[in-house]
Design a protein around this nucleic acid. Structure first.
Lengths: 208, 208
DNA sequence: CGCCGCGTTGAGTTTGTTCAATTAGTGTGG
DNA sequence: CCACACTAATTGAACAAACTCAACGCGGCG
């Protein structure tokens, strides 16, 4: 099922809207490759990324009859997107439910990040989360991984200014916590960093 | 159905945990009266309220087989809680789905609040949201409503310190935007305030 | 009364922002 | 190959927002 969906995936260029806030949700989709983000734009133009969507994530899952998208979703890179296989067809109910629960857990993590962490810890915490999620999708090479984000995007995700992100990244580098060259991020010691900033990874089901 | 559930509701005192993060989710519940909150506690004791649960809200909805709670839920006031009627029994599927979608929308609103609004606007935005939700539950008296929150709780919801909340509340009062006496909040002109801070209420379905 | 939780106030400090300029990197056309 | 344009990253200095710490007021209640 899933393999078929992946085969039928279509290409979507960078910076395209997959879902638009307030408009009807089309069929659920699977992000096969590339990154996307849920984003909210304020009236004065400020932007807030609500969450990132990574390869393997589902887009627009919803059990409603006539659902409206609660947030815009746009691609951050060129991407491949497939129609999500119908949950009735295969035994995907559980998988979809777990995916939904995980997505909620990430939203909650984002709230605590913004509400209670300082700039430096926000960056580290987010990088640990991305590391963790990419690991689930088997997209880690050694201790490093691809993060196709500009410092401005990072700022919009973490509720900070690009300038401050820049300075805090240098700080993190000086502290020996992470390396960021081009779009490749390396965490020196994820476990130690997680312990230091008091991060606990998301758990959603007793099975995992 | 719902009436029966309400009749069978049980009392829960203030400051009790209805769900505990990381532990199994018992049967879904309906908050009949009183307030509760989803909360996350950091290792160093800092606290972040993720969302508020108001009368009529569902607790622990989940489509998983062996779900773990992704957040702790605790009562903020004495409350009444009932077992949520099974969605198979009546035509509650749609209602539950909509409730879920709304809950997600409120989480997203919380993220933008924390990420992109300053202290004063966070307070106003949250009060407008609570106003809006209480209105749906028909719990508004005139232009004012009950908000059983201390300034410390408000601080934990908005990612600020109690001291700063205090000063900003005075500011809002001086600006003529809201009145807060005891636990009763009065918004002078909700619509105008919403316009001024650029707030748009949540919409989740084309039906509503 | 005297304690206790909550709200209030002041002064000084920290954290993050703003504005403006500079540098580096990348791709494009001549 | 270089000039040019464009985007992203970097830097400095002044400024503003929010925090910290510590004290004080105040109402309810045993």
């Amino acid at each position: 099922m899933v393999e078929a969906a992946v085969r039928d995936s279509r290409r979507v260029p960078m910076r395209r809207e997959l879902l638009t806030e307030g408009r009807a949700v089309p069929e659920p989709m699977l992000l096969v490759s590339g990154w996307a983000a849920r984003v909210r734009i304020l009236v004065d133009g400020r932007r807030q990324f609500l969450s990132f969507l990574l390869p393997g994530d589902l887009i627009g899952l919803c059990r409603q009859d006539r659902p409206l998208a609660v947030s815009t979703v746009q691609t951050l890179t060129d991407a491949k997107v497939a129609t999500a296989p119908d949950s009735d067809v295969a035994d995907l109910h559980q998988a979809y439910a777990a995916s939904n629960a995980l997505e909620e857990a990430y939203l909650l993590a984002q709230i605590t990040r913004l509400g209670r962490l300082n700039a430096l810890d926000r960056i580290c915490d987010l990088m640990l989360e991305i590391h963790e999620r990419l690991a689930l999708a088997d997209l880690i090479q050694g201790r490093s991984f691809e993060v196709p984000l500009t410092q401005e995007m990072l700022a919009d995700a973490l509720g900070l200014t690009p300038v401050h992100i820049n300075r805090m990244l240098q700080q993190a580098r000086r502290d020996g916590d992470l390396e960021w060259r081009g779009s490749r991020v390396t965490l020196s010691d994820p476990a130690a960093l997680a312990r230091r900033i008091g991060r606990t990874p998301a758990r959603v089901s007793a099975d995992v």
